[in-house]
């Protein structure tokens, strides 16, 4: 079942068209990476899903209920973590979670249990100072806890790691990893290594359109190119190698100073030829590697 469905979504701010007909569906239980450069329309899309912005066209359904602008009914299925979550600085974490729980309509006893559990998960159980004294990383972790207080079916995180240092980033990604399977997560980012680490689905948003969409393994398989990377010890080695390389492989080369990448439709034949040339000419490369497609390559390819 798809937990979130977006159909032909359109949104402009004055003259500029930000979202130009996005359609996508997020299957239940997935961790969905929503990738795009700054200004690609990620936050706008998320705010439309939450009913905070009014779309110019299209339809959004969450758990088969249509999202209506200004109304908050569908938000009971959703937990939202903004990119820089803002809290009431005079509250303590437990008070804030209690407040969020009450707003979400939880009972007193379940608020107590749930907030204890979540504060433990995000590592804030022993913190009793006011939120005003929190670091950015702590606020982000509290944000995750508050987003999960109502046990939402869908967690929407807007660039949850982009403002954090490496330790904070790892902590937030670990928390998101922990809830995998229990909650569907949509996770917008421009940090591609984060997507590779925790997502199983991804969509690339570019200029207001989805240019790539699918499971991570599907995407990688579809965009697989047989490429061979060779790093030579010297520029002269590389020059000699290029000289000996038969014409059928020399047509598709990305060359740098002392290394090069060969592309071919037939990886095995290419490998065999390359190894032969290397051994016949006594060229000892520093590194010899078959390149697998990375999310970064897929992204760059998609947005070019």
């Amino acid at each position: 079942m798809d937990i979130l469905c977006i159909e032909h979504l359109l949104k402009s701010f004055r003259e500029s068209e930000v979202i130009k007909g996005i359609s996508l569906s997020v299957p239940e239980g997935s961790v969905y990476g929503f990738i795009g450069e700054n200004g690609a329309g990620k936050t706008t899309t998320m705010k439309i899903i939450l009913g905070l912005l009014k779309p110019d066209g299209g339809k959004v359904t969450v758990c088969n209920e249509t999202v209506r602008f200004g109304m908050t009914a569908t938000n009971r299925h959703i937990g939202y973590l903004p990119d820089v979550p803002e809290f009431y600085n005079y509250m303590r974490p437990k008070e804030y979670l209690r407040f969020c729980g009450e707003i979400a309509g939880l009972t007193d006893s379940s608020i107590g249990k749930r907030s204890d559990y979540l504060l433990d998960v995000v590592g804030l159980k022993k913190t009793d100072k006011k939120i005003g004294g929190f670091s950015r990383g702590m606020k982000q972790r509290l944000g995750v806890a508050s987003a999960l207080i109502n046990s939402p079916k869908l967690l929407i995180c807007d660039e949850p790691t982009s403002a954090l240092d490496p330790v904070g980033r790892k902590e937030v990604l670990d928390i998101l990893g922990q809830i995998r399977g229990k909650t569907t997560v949509i996770f917008s980012t421009h940090i591609l290594s984060d997507v590779e680490r925790i997502c199983d689905h991804a969509a690339v948003l570019h200029n207001g359109k989805i240019v790539l969409d699918g499971t991570l393994s599907e995407l990688k398989a579809k965009h697989k190119k047989d490429s061979l990377f060779i790093d030579f010890l010297s520029v002269s080695d590389k020059a000699l190698f290029c000289e000996k390389l038969p014409r059928e492989f020399s047509g598709n080369i990305e060359a740098n100073e002392a290394d090069l990448i060969l592309h071919s439709g037939n990886l095995q034949a290419m490998e065999k030829t390359v190894l032969q040339i290397l051994s016949q000419n006594d060229i000892m490369p520093r590194r010899f590697e078959i390149l697998a497609p990375t999310i970064e390559n897929l992204f760059l390819e998609a947005v070019q």
């Binding site: 908050t72 939202y80 707003i103």
Partner: peptide
């Protein structure tokens, strides 16, 4: 303007 209300509205609180 601070954005503190966003968290609360997305919990289902009526505007």
């Amino acid at each position: 303007s601070k954005g503190t209300l966003i968290n609360i509205l997305t919990k289902g609180m009526k505007r």
